[in-house]
Design a protein around this nucleic acid. Structure first.
Lengths: 65, 65
DNA sequence: CTGTAGACTGAGGTCGACG
DNA sequence: CCGTCGACCTCAGTCTACA
């Protein structure tokens, strides 16, 4: 669906030297779920997107651009 | 959770003279579900938010601002 | 026209393990 | 460190109906 979002999350995570486990923990979601999101296999809910954007220190609208 | 989004959707819908049924149909979702979203009783998925933003002729990031 | 309710299905999401 | 798999459970989202 939205493959760009997946790539952006992965890119931002790596730029901040975070592992999937660290980011997942920071965002309060499961690592396996984060992996699925980064590979565009699952479409997260608004709630979880907000958590992820906060964990990446970026606003939700910006994350979706 | 995000009450502002709910209000914004309702506002934009009315500005475009759409009923819940019309907008729901245009977005491909159920009217009862749209009602719940507009009253902040349910948190939609990314997928459905995209559908709604398109039906309202607004970009998803802008809808979330 | 809208809010709400009940009953239902499928997707979102967890946890743990492993190559 | 990451991708994936299976078992599991919650909730998003459906439809129909009604005040």
């Amino acid at each position: 669906m939205s493959a760009k979002l997946a790539q952006k999350i992965k890119r931002l995570r790596k730029e901040q030297n975070l592992t999937q486990i660290k980011l997942a923990k920071k965002a309060g979601i499961a690592q396996s779920f984060l992996s699925n999101i980064e590979n565009d296999l699952q479409s997260p809910s608004l709630k979880n997107l907000e958590k992820i954007s906060k964990a990446l220190d970026i606003s939700l609208p910006d994350l979706l651009k």
